[in-house]
Design a protein around this nucleic acid. Structure first.
Length: 607
DNA sequence: ATAGGGTTAG
């Protein structure tokens, strides 16, 4: 809309002013035009500027055009500037690399126009202009943003051809580009390993690349190598390292990072503080996250959202809601992500009416169109509250086709609230749409278990085998003395494994005495009941808890991180264990936290 | 005159 306005106004002003074109001294004309560009901070001024450029005969002045392009990028009308600069009546013999770089830069930094950066880059060759060392970081950044490995490799080839591939900026962006192209992390690593002089940016690009792919252990390894190499990390490096801690649930490591930041005098930027908040919240210490948040002088929407999401994950929905209100009062405008956090807070804490209210507020007051994620939160909220029918109606009325995430939420609710037929039907269709997605089978299998349809349940397992699917192994991580230990079901790789299994056996006896009945219905293996019980006892979370009971002083809290959802037997067992052994047990699963204490869980048994 | 790596989401 705005764009159209500018255009028509520009055309009018141009026509009016052409007649009076005045050829003054070229230099002073250039000077006056440059100061106009300097002062160009609004769309009306932009229109006047364009008229002046033409009037002063600077239509083909490369410096003026370059600055003009830069300012148009700031005002969000880069497309308009590019059609002006590269129009038919422009004198292309005056184009230079700098002019092209300006456009490539502007497009590479605009999220939905990255293809155009590559288009401009390709077109410069057509004008006989070759890229320089400044061109490549922009182009590579665009490739990274697009995740287009083919283009990235072609650009890489071009850097080699023109001899810029050893420039440190080019190389760092190239590493970043390969990291952003998913499967190419090895290419990034090879480039990185070949570098003679890595600076903190190279290391950060590599660490960040591993984190983005969920290879956080590798990220931490690279960080350790960085320290050995003696390169001083900066605040950006530390943000990536903190992301790795967050992903791993490594609270101790995260705390170490915080003290390291202070010790090394690394600047606590807003982003670094945000990463710390996120880390503390997602590693189980949401109170520490809150404390940090309160101490921040300058907060961004990310700071607020991080702490709201953190509270939501811990089931502290009311606090999350009041923080959201506080945010509004402080004058911060919520964005769509903040609303996702808020709605998920309502959902995890059963605040259905509040959630409904905020869902309407989002459009009515803030003019944010709900995306499928927001609808997803609403469905989740209705499902948790047991309002399955309402959830179904809501899905039918929403302006999107439900995605599989929403449908899985619904199926899980069907299982939990006894709508088994409906759940069966939906999960069957999920399987036919997404035959290689494991959780679709798990859901169906759990529904059959609840229906006591054991033969059908076995068939589900067979379907998976037939398709050659492997179950994602459940694994649990626990941190002890700054080491991260990972357990998988039936794990015997640990040095202490004999003691661990003895402890598991003791736990089993104690739980039985306290009245725990093993719930074998979620076991996916085709084995008899007694073996199923045995399989349950070898679940990774039980091994990790046994390991913690053996190796930590009585009464200290136990924190574990699970890669999947907690199974219902482990959930019930952990409640018993928390009571029997007088331990607070904090479990982070795929979606949220469970705080087990005195035989109860903060999730109120719905997750 | 123009360059690189970072934070929030079901």
């Amino acid at each position: 809309m705005q764009f159209q306005n500018v255009k028509s106004r520009v055309v009018r002003t141009v026509t009016e002013s052409i007649v009076g074109a005045d050829a003054g001294s070229k230099r002073s004309a250039e000077q006056s035009c440059l100061s106009l560009i300097e002062a160009c901070n609004s769309l009306p001024r932009f229109s006047q500027l364009l008229a002046r450029i033409i009037k002063l005969g600077l239509r083909n002045n490369p410096l003026v055009l370059t600055k003009f392009a830069a300012v148009s990028s700031e005002l969000g009308v880069i497309d308009y500037a590019s059609s002006f600069v590269f129009s038919m009546d422009a004198d292309s013999s005056l184009y230079d690399a700098f002019l092209f770089n300006t456009f490539i830069r502007a497009y590479a930094h605009t999220s939905n126009l990255k293809e155009k950066a590559l288009f401009v880059y390709n077109s410069m060759f057509g004008y006989g202009i070759l890229p320089n060392k400044f061109t490549y970081p922009f182009v590579l950044k665009a490739c990274a943003g697009l995740g287009n490995l083919g283009l990235g490799k072609a650009v890489h080839g071009s850097t080699v051809k023109f001899g810029f591939d050893n420039d440190v900026h080019v190389r760092n962006t190239m590493i970043h580009m390969y990291c952003c192209c998913g499967s190419a992390i090895e290419d990034a690593r090879n480039l990185f390993d070949e570098m003679h002089k890595c600076d903190s940016v190279s290391w950060s690009a590599m660490i960040g690349g591993y984190v983005r792919l969920g290879l956080s252990t590798d990220a931490v390894d690279v960080f350790r190598k960085m320290q050995i190499a003696g390169v001083r990390p900066d605040e950006i490096t530390m943000v990536s390292v903190l992301s790795a801690c967050t992903d791993l649930g490594a609270l101790e490591l995260g705390k170490w990072v915080e003290s390291y930041v202070d010790k090394e005098g690394i600047q606590r930027s807003v982003e670094l503080c945000n990463a710390l908040i996120d880390m503390f919240a997602k590693c189980g210490d949401v109170d520490k996250a809150l404390k940090l948040f309160r101490r921040m002088r300058e907060r961004t929407i990310v700071s607020w959202t991080s702490v709201i999401v953190g509270l939501a994950m811990h089931g502290r929905g009311l606090e999350a809601v009041s923080l959201f209100e506080e945010m509004i009062e402080s004058g911060m405008t919520p964005d769509n992500v903040a609303f996702i956090g808020l709605l998920s807070a309502c959902s995890h804490s059963g605040l259905v009416d509040k959630g409904r209210g905020y869902f309407s507020l989002m459009t009515e007051e803030y003019d944010i169109a709900p995306k499928i994620e927001h609808y997803g939160c609403m469905v989740d909220m209705l499902c948790r509250a047991g309002l399955v029918n309402e959830a179904v109606e809501f899905i039918q009325k929403m302006p999107f086709e439900p995605n599989s995430i929403i449908l899985r939420t619904l199926v899980n609710a069907c299982r939990a609230h006894g709508e088994l037929k409906l759940g069966e039907r939906i999960s069957r269709s999920l399987i036919s749409n997404e035959p290689m997605h494991e959780s679709n089978y798990v859901l169906l299998s759990n529904i059959y278990a609840k229906m006591s349809h054991w033969e059908k349940k076995t068939k589900v397992r067979e379907m998976m085998d037939m398709k050659g699917m492997k179950k994602i192994p459940g694994s649990t991580m626990i941190e002890l003395d700054s080491e991260i230990y990972e357990f998988v079901a039936g794990d015997k790789s640990h040095k202490q494994y004999k003691e661990i299994y003895e402890m598991v056996e003791e736990m089993r006896r104690e739980m039985k005495r306290a009245g725990h009945v093993p719930s074998t219905s979620e076991v996916m293996l085709d084995i008899d009941e007694e073996d199923k019980e045995d399989a349950l006892n070898r679940h990774s979370e039980k091994l990790a808890i046994a390991f913690a009971l053996l190796n930590t002083p009585p009464g200290t809290p136990i924190r574990i991180v699970k890669n999947l959802r907690v199974c219902s037997d482990c959930h019930s067992a952990t409640k018993f264990i928390s009571k029997i052994y007088h331990r607070e047990i904090v479990v982070r699963d795929r979606n949220r936290f469970h705080h087990f204490k005195d035989g109860l869980c903060s999730c109120k048994d719905f997750w």
